[in-house]
């Protein structure tokens, strides 16, 4: 399927979904004016991809510097989709990269990670 590439803006992260390579990434800051408008197309593309993943492998990297509370809900929904795919037999690795100087983002990553039952969660420090 067609890759999804959305360049970053001041208020929205870059989305780099390379479906052929099974490497998906969200990178930057996330405090969109309208969370649904931004994440809607991201969710649809991911849903289509995951529905066809079967027992395949994929890697998802979150490299978020900052996200507002409305975005946190969207990220949780992304995590749920990945976990569901893993529960159906896919091998899913989720990497949460956090700035070593911001423990709030580390904590948030840990909280998301705790809820993953089937996908494998990795917490990674970003070089400052």
């Amino acid at each position: 399927m067609q890759n999804l590439e959305i360049p970053a803006t001041a208020r929205t992260p870059a989305v780099l979904f390379d479906f052929g390579q099974h490497q998906l990434k969200i990178k930057g800051e996330s405090y969109p004016e309208d969370v649904t408008e931004f994440y809607g197309p991201v969710f649809s593309a991911l849903d289509t991809y995951l529905a066809n993943l079967g027992e395949g492998q994929c890697r998802f990297d979150f490299e978020l510097i900052y996200l507002n509370s409305s975005s946190a809900k969207a990220i949780m929904m992304l995590m749920d989709k990945l976990d569901l795919a893993a529960s159906k037999g896919a091998t899913v690795d989720v990497y949460w990269h956090y700035d070593k100087e911001d423990d709030t983002m580390q904590e948030l990553g840990e909280e998301f990670g705790e809820d993953l039952e089937n996908a494998k969660f990795h917490l990674e420090k970003m070089a400052g």
């Binding site: 510097i65 900052y66 507002n68 509370s69 700035d99 100087e101 911001d102 709030t104």
Partner: peptide
């Protein structure tokens, strides 16, 4: 300001404005 302070002040500002 250190990174954590900068991010926290900014985060609080965004939530209050919204």
């Amino acid at each position: 300001a250190d990174t954590k302070t900068l991010r926290s002040v900014f985060a609080v500002f965004v939530e209050q404005m919204q």
